[in-house]
Write a protein that binds this DNA or RNA. Structure first.
Lengths: 360, 360
DNA sequence: CTGAAAGCGCTAACAA
DNA sequence: TTGTTAGCGCTTTCAG
C-alpha cells in the first residue's frame, strides 16, 4: 500500500518547458526574477504533467517541514465530549491550510505517551507545536519546552516551570467571569453561587478568581466544585441547594455544568430565572441555545483562538497576507483584547462578551 | 521559527560506532544480519548522540511517508458536537502511533476544500487516507477515489460511484436497529415510533431500514425525521406526539436525538419507560448515562472502528504484532462481526450490542 | 556479514 | 536573468 505512483519530477517539468531545474524551482516557489515568457512555459508544463513538488526532497534541503504538531493531552476520555477542541482544531486547520502547512495530530493519554510526544517533538519532524494541556500538574509542557521546539499553548499553561517564556493564546477567563458575576449582581441578586471547573485547570482557576474579584466576601458555602461536565454541575448544584437553599443566582464555570445545574434547579421546583438566575461560560451553541431556558453566558471565540495560535506559531515566516500592524495582528474584523508581550514571545488574551438569553 | 537545530546524522553515528552508514541503517531499521557486537555499539552511539532518523531523507529514498491523512468532511459546524469523531480519532491515533505513522488531519468545509483535499491526496504526500464523509451526495469520496490513494472510509460511503471497490469500516447499523426495535416489541409495545437521522447519511438510512425490517407495516406517521441533534429529536418527538398521541415506544436513531425526545416526553407529562419506552443508538456515555432516565441504547465500539480503519489501511506493510488469523484479524479480544470481503478490499462491519438501562 | 557508492528530488550558491 | 553544480540524510544494490 505504501508506494505512491511515480510522479513527475522537477527534471521532467524542466525538460518539457525547455528550461533548467533551477528555473522551474523558482517559478514553482514564486520567486521573482524569471522572465514571464519562461514562467508561462513552466506553468504550462507543470499543469500538463500534473507536477506536485515532493515535500520530502524539499524538506531535506530547506530543513523545514511545513508541518506543525497539534498535541492534545487529555488523560480522560472526556476530551471530545465538549466541542471545544473541535472548534479550536477548526481554527488551527484553517490557518495552517492557508499557509500550506500540514497539521500532524498527536493525541496522548497517560504518562508514557508524554515521553513519546517529547521524543517526537525533539526529533525535529515538525516546525513547531500547538499544545493543549490544561492540567496544572501536567509534565508535558515542561517536556515540550525542553524539546526546543517553537510552541504555542492553547490556554495559559499552569506549569511551575516558568510561564515567563511560554507563548499562549487564551480568552480572558477572569474578566469574563467578572462580567458574568457583575451581571448577576446588577440583576439585584445577593446570593450568587459559583460552580467551579476542575481546580487543576487554569481556565477554571481564572474564572473562580473572577468571581472572587467581584464578590470577595462571598460565603464559601456558595462555591461548589464542578468538573466542566453536566453531571458535575448537577452534583454541585445539589450541594449548593443543600447548603444554601436561599441561593438566587449561579455562575457556572462553563455551559455544560450550567446545563446540569439547570436540570437540578428545575427538579427542585425552582424557576429560572425568576427564582434563580444562571449564567454559563463558553457560549457553546448546541448547549447554550438548547438549554432550558436558553443560557445567558460568556462568549469566547474558540475558533479564533485556534487561528491565532497557528498564526502566532508561524509568525514571520508566512507569506502572510492582509493584516496591517505588527506582531499578531490579523486581517479579521474582530477587535482584539490585551496583547501582553512577555520576554520570549507574546501572549494573546482574547476578550469575552456576555450573551444575554433567558436564564439570567 | 522553522529551522530545527542541527541534529546528528547517520554518518555521525557511524563514525562514533566505528562502522559504516549502511550498518547503522540496518540496525536502526531492525534488519537482521548484523553481528550483535556491532549492533550493540551502534545502539550505544545512537543513544549517546540522541540520534533520530530524518524522515524526509528516508522518505526520499523509500518513497513511503509513514503518514496517513485523516479527512473529516463536514460542512456543518456540528462535527465535533457529538464525541463521535473524537473517539474514532482516538482509535486511529492509537493504531498509527503503534506503527510509528503520522496522522495528518485534513478538515474540510465547503466544496473548494474538497478540491484542495483531492489535490493534496493526489499529490502523494501520504501513504493513504482515512475518510469520513457521511453524506450521500458528497463528491469527496469520488474525488478521493480518483486520486488513486489507498483509502478506507469510516462508515459505509453512500456514493453512487461504485461502492464495490470501496473499503470501509462500519458498525452494523441495520442489525443494531433491529435489536433495538425487537427489544421494544418484546416489551409488549405496539406503537413503536422511529426518529430518524439525516436522510442523507448512510448510517441513518441503515438504521431506518432496520426499523422497517422488524416493523414493515408500521404506520408512516410513526416515523419522524430528525438530524442526530437533541433539538432535532425534540422537534421529531413533538411531531410524533401530535400525530400519534398513543405512541408507546420510540427508537431514536442516536442518543442525542433520544435525549431530545426524552425532554419532550417529560414535558408532555409522560413517564419513561412506563408510558413510553425509549431506545437510542451509539451508547455515547456522557449522553446515555446522564440522560433522565438513563438510556437503553445500542452500543457500537467507535474507538475500535477507528483502530480497524487504520489497521486495514496499513494492512500488510505493518510489522504487525500479535494477531492470529489472516486479513483484518487483530489481537484484541473483541469478537468481530461479519467480514464482508468484496472485490478490491474488505469491509468490516462491527457488531452492536443492546445496553439496557432504565428508559426501556 | 559489512562497506563503498549511487542516487531519491529538490534548493541554493555560484557562474555565466 | 538563467543554468550548473553541489549536496541535504538516508536506503540500497553490489562488491568484498
Amino acid at each position: 500500500m505504501p508506494q505512491a505512483a511515480a510522479r513527475p519530477t522537477l527534471e521532467a517539468v524542466a525538460a518539457r518547458a525547455g528550461v533548467s531545474r533551477a528555473t522551474v524551482s523558482r517559478v514553482v516557489n514564486g520567486e521573482a526574477g524569471v522572465r514571464e515568457v519562461l514562467a508561462v512555459k513552466v506553468r504550462r508544463a507543470v499543469k500538463e504533467l500534473g507536477y506536485v513538488p515532493n515535500r520530502a526532497a524539499r524538506s531535506l534541503v530547506t530543513r523545514r517541514h511545513d508541518a506543525v504538531a497539534v498535541v492534545i493531552a487529555e488523560p480522560e476520555t472526556r476530551v471530545f465530549a465538549d466541542p471545544f477542541f473541535g472548534l479550536q482544531l477548526r481554527g488551527i486547520s484553517k490557518e495552517l491550510t492557508a499557509r500550506d502547512v500540514q497539521l500532524v495530530l498527536l493525541l496522548t493519554e497517560g504518562r508514557d505517551d508524554h515521553e513519546r510526544v517529547g521524543r517526537y517533538l525533539a526529533g525535529g519532524h515538525v516546525d513547531g507545536a500547538l499544545v493543549f494541556s490544561l492540567h496544572l500538574d501536567d509534565p508535558l509542557p515542561g517536556i515540550i519546552h525542553g524539546a526546543g521546539v517553537p510552541t504555542v499553548f492553547g490556554g495559559r499553561p499552569g506549569w511551575a516551570g516558568g510561564v515567563g517564556s511560554a507563548r499562549y493564546v487564551d480568552c480572558d477567563n477572569r474578566g469574563g467571569a467578572r462580567q458574568a458575576v457583575r451581571h448577576l449582581v446588577g440583576l439585584g441578586r445577593t446570593r450568587v453561587a459559583h460552580i467551579t471547573g476542575p481546580p487543576d485547570q487554569t481556565s477554571a482557576v481564572d474564572r473562580h478568581d473572577g468571581y472572587r474579584d467581584v464578590l470577595p466576601t462571598a460565603d464559601p458555602d456558595l462555591t461548589a466544585t464542578g468538573d466542566f461536565t453536566p453531571a458535575g454541575g448537577e452534583r454541585a448544584m445539589r450541594l449548593l441547594l443543600d447548603r444554601r437553599p436561599d441561593v438566587d443566582a449561579v455562575f457556572a464555570a462553563n455551559d455544560l455544568s450550567a446545563s446540569g445545574a439547570l436540570r437540578v434547579l428545575r427538579e427542585s421546583g425552582r424557576r429560572v430565572p425568576q427564582d434563580v438566575a444562571v449564567v454559563g461560560f463558553d457560549d457553546m451553541l448546541p448547549v447554550a441555545e438548547q438549554a432550558d431556558p436558553p443560557l445567558t453566558t460568556v462568549r469566547q471565540d474558540i475558533e479564533e483562538m485556534g487561528r491565532l495560535m497557528a498564526a502566532m506559531l508561524l509568525r514571520g515566516q508566512g507569506q502572510a497576507g492582509g493584516g496591517g500592524g505588527a506582531g499578531t495582528a490579523e486581517e479579521g474584523d474582530a477587535a482584539y483584547g490585551e496583547v501582553d508581550v512577555e520576554d520570549d514571545g507574546a501572549c494573546v488574551v482574547l476578550p469575552t462578551e456576555l450573551v444575554r438569553r433567558e436564564s439570567a
